[in-house]
């Protein structure tokens, strides 16, 4: 049985999403099974009309422009491209909290890369054997 990683994504900030996508994609490349549960701002950040426009940073806001410039200089991919590559080559499943989806008035089809809507209890049971779990 594959090692399992669980990630709960509450934040919609791109700096946190970048950290999340690096962990999730690396784990998937190492043959881990990764289950991601999106909550409030996480669901918002995965909206098709938001994902590429979102430049919200959670920390050191005053450094945002310099960080973005440096990331562009390094030709570093955006967080969603890293996650997409991980999902294409590995075992990553992304579930959106059904209540958050209701709050944003979206269905699965309005969200990028999301496999399904889910309630918290089902997700908790799904990841009960996870060896590593993160809350972002």
């Amino acid at each position: 049985m594959a090692d399992k990683m669980a990630i709960v994504v509450f934040s919609g900030s791109v700096d946190r999403l970048l950290g999340m996508s690096i962990l999730a994609s690396s784990a998937a490349a190492m043959d881990w099974e990764v289950d991601i549960f999106l909550q409030l701002w996480g669901v918002y950040a995965f909206k098709k009309d938001v994902m590429k426009e979102n430049m919200n940073f959670s920390e050191f806001e005053e450094l945002k422009d310099a960080v973005v410039k440096r990331i562009q200089e390094l030709n570093f991919p955006m967080w969603y491209d890293i996650l997409k590559q991980g999902k294409e080559t590995g075992n990553i499943h992304i579930y959106a909290c059904s209540t958050a989806a209701k709050a944003w008035n979206v269905t699965k089809d309005d969200l990028e890369m999301v496999d399904d809507l889910m309630e918290a209890g089902e997700f908790i049971e799904k990841v009960r054997d996870a060896k590593l779990s993160f809350f972002i």
Binding site: I22, S25, S26, A29, M30, P77, I82, G86, T89
Partner: peptide, 9 residues
């Protein structure tokens, strides 16, 4: 990171 790892995979 994680570019080289993802490319390897």
């Amino acid at each position: 990171c994680p570019g080289p790892l993802l490319e390897a995979k």
